Simulated scan of single mutants.
Amino acid sequence: MKKLSNQEIEKRIENLIDWDFYEDALHTDFEFDNFKDCMSAMNRIAFECEALNHHPEWTNVYNTLEIRLTTHDADGVTELDFKLAEAINKIVEVEE
């Protein structure tokens, strides 16, 4: 998988709601009503990660979920990171 240039990433991220690009990775965070809803979202995301064979760096504290996406084999952001970010937004149903 080819690492995308910063210019390519900046252009693509404009269409990705609630995601930022810094430290060679895509970043977002979500706040849910409670712990159960957060864990439910994490479990749904996990199935998509397995299907894509691409796994996030993420942390959960009570009702918040922070996600960092990067492709370690490419030393940066690739098309696969954007594909997973888009899937995560659909799972969590991010609104504009």
Rank of each mutant, 00 (worst) to 15 (best):
E95Y: 06
R44L: 08
A41V: 01
E50C: 02
C49A: 07
I13R: 09
E79T: 11
W58F: 11
L65F: 09
N89Q: 00
E31C: 00
A41D: 08
L4Q: 03
R12V: 08
A85Q: 09
L69A: 02
L84C: 03
L4G: 06
F21S: 05
M42T: 03
E50I: 00
N60E: 11
K90P: 00
D24Q: 15
A51Q: 15
A46S: 15
M42K: 10
E48H: 11
L65C: 05
E8D: 12
I91T: 01
A51K: 15
N15A: 15
N89L: 06
E57C: 06
E31M: 07
T64P: 13
I45S: 09
E79P: 10
I13H: 05
M42E: 04
A74S: 15
V61M: 14
D33I: 00
L84V: 00
V92S: 13
W58V: 06
F47T: 09
V94K: 11
Y22W: 12
F30Y: 09
M42Y: 10
D75Y: 15
L80P: 00
N15W: 11
A51P: 03
L52V: 10
E57A: 11
P56G: 11
I9H: 02
L4P: 01
D18Q: 09
L26Q: 01
L16I: 05
L26M: 05
L4S: 04
K11T: 15
M39S: 07
E10L: 14
S5W: 06
A25H: 02
T64C: 14
H72I: 07
F47D: 14
V61Y: 10
E79Q: 13
E57H: 11
H27E: 03
F35P: 06
R68L: 00
H27R: 10
F82C: 07
K90R: 11
D29C: 04
I45C: 07
H27D: 06
N15Q: 14
M1C: 02
N53A: 03
A87G: 01
D73V: 01
A85N: 05
W19I: 01
L80S: 10
M1A: 13
P56C: 13
R12T: 08
R68D: 01
P56Y: 09
A25G: 10
F32Y: 05
N89S: 10
V92Y: 14
D33E: 12
T71V: 05
T59A: 14
L69R: 00
W58D: 03
F47P: 01
N60Y: 03
F32P: 05
T78Q: 15
E96L: 09
G76C: 09
E57T: 12
K90S: 15
E8K: 04
R68W: 00
H54I: 01
A51D: 14
G76A: 10
F82P: 04
L16F: 03
A85C: 12
A51L: 10
E93W: 07
T59K: 13
N63W: 00
L52D: 07
F47G: 03
D81M: 05
D29F: 03
K83M: 08
Y22T: 09
A51I: 04
E14K: 02
Y62V: 11
A74H: 12
E31W: 01
N6G: 13
N60C: 05
I13E: 03
Q7C: 02
M1V: 08
